[in-house]
């Protein structure tokens, strides 16, 4: 508990700066249905640029569902229907004019279980830049791959084995490879759905450190089940419950003096 409170005090100063700028993502009246099931009700949220926003809440409350709305990954689920609007940089991403493929290049995603492609480490990272035509020459691609791996803090561990299979790495390394893969297409927003739930504490610490570093360049939204993790890495926290966004607040406020009783109960471990 001690470490959390120190972490909270260190993050407070940066939070104030973030409050000044206008929001990167703004969701208005978002409703999500899976067939008949109403999974998200009337979600409104503003997410600030160059900051980390954590989504918390009990299992099945719709955190992943909302996260997947932000890059239209829900389009791949046939039964899923989204209503309302989600603006990114002021443009509604559910507008028919928007190409979800383009959108996903701008809004990258890291999943709960590390899912490297069964290709070499190099090819894993080069995959995104290739399909988006980001590199003209082989040397450009090499540079992109190297800098993405550096940003993901994996470069030193893999620089001598870029041609080995990505599936042969440890779980923590695989997850950082997936982050590098997302970073390589130069997104503006990175969505992470429980990125550390399959990792041991040391690998988790590395990924959290990485999130800290990425914050200066990217807008990060992370779903987590660990209050400590939310407290450690995020500036803003949003609490979901039964498909509702019950509270959204500064992280330090949220974990010390939440406005909503349900948040209080959840943080104190009374349910979920």
């Amino acid at each position: 508990m001690n470490s959390i409170s120190t972490m909270i005090t260190t993050t407070t100063s940066t939070t104030k700066a973030a409050t000044m700028s206008e929001s990167k993502i703004s969701a208005r009246n978002v409703q999500v249905f899976y067939g008949e099931k109403h999974a998200l009700r009337d979600v409104n949220i503003e997410i600030r640029p160059r900051s980390v926003t954590a989504f918390i809440g009990p299992s099945g409350c719709g955190k992943s569902t909302f996260l997947r709305c932000l890059n239209r990954m829900n389009d791949t689920i046939a039964s899923c229907r989204v209503e309302g609007s989600i603006g990114i940089d002021g443009e509604n991403i559910y507008d028919p004019k928007v190409d979800p493929v383009q959108l996903r290049a701008k809004v990258g995603m890291v999943f709960q279980k590390p899912n490297p492609f069964p290709k070499s480490i190099y090819e894993n990272v080069a995959y995104g830049p290739r399909i988006h035509g980001l590199a003209r020459k082989k040397s450009d691609l090499d540079d992109i791959v190297a800098s993405a791996l550096q940003k993901a803090g994996l470069w030193n561990e893999v620089k001598d084995r870029l041609q080995e299979s990505g599936t042969g790495l440890s779980g923590g390394q695989q997850q950082r490879l997936c982050i590098a893969r997302a970073v390589a297409v130069s997104p503006e927003i990175i969505l992470m759905d429980e990125p550390c739930s399959a990792l041991d504490p040391i690998a988790t610490a590395k990924v959290e450190e990485l999130i800290h570093e990425l914050r200066s360049n990217y807008t990060i939204v992370i779903v987590t089940h660990s209050m400590q993790q939310a407290a450690r890495v995020s500036q803003r926290t949003a609490m979901f419950h039964l498909g509702l966004l019950v509270e959204e607040n500064d992280t330090d406020k949220m974990f010390t003096n939440p406005d909503d009783q349900r948040t209080q109960d959840y943080i104190m471990g009374r349910f979920g």
Partner: peptide, 8 residues
């Protein structure tokens, strides 16, 4: 999902 998530 990983591939779609990268904008493929």
């Amino acid at each position: 999902d990983g591939s779609y998530g990268l904008g493929a």
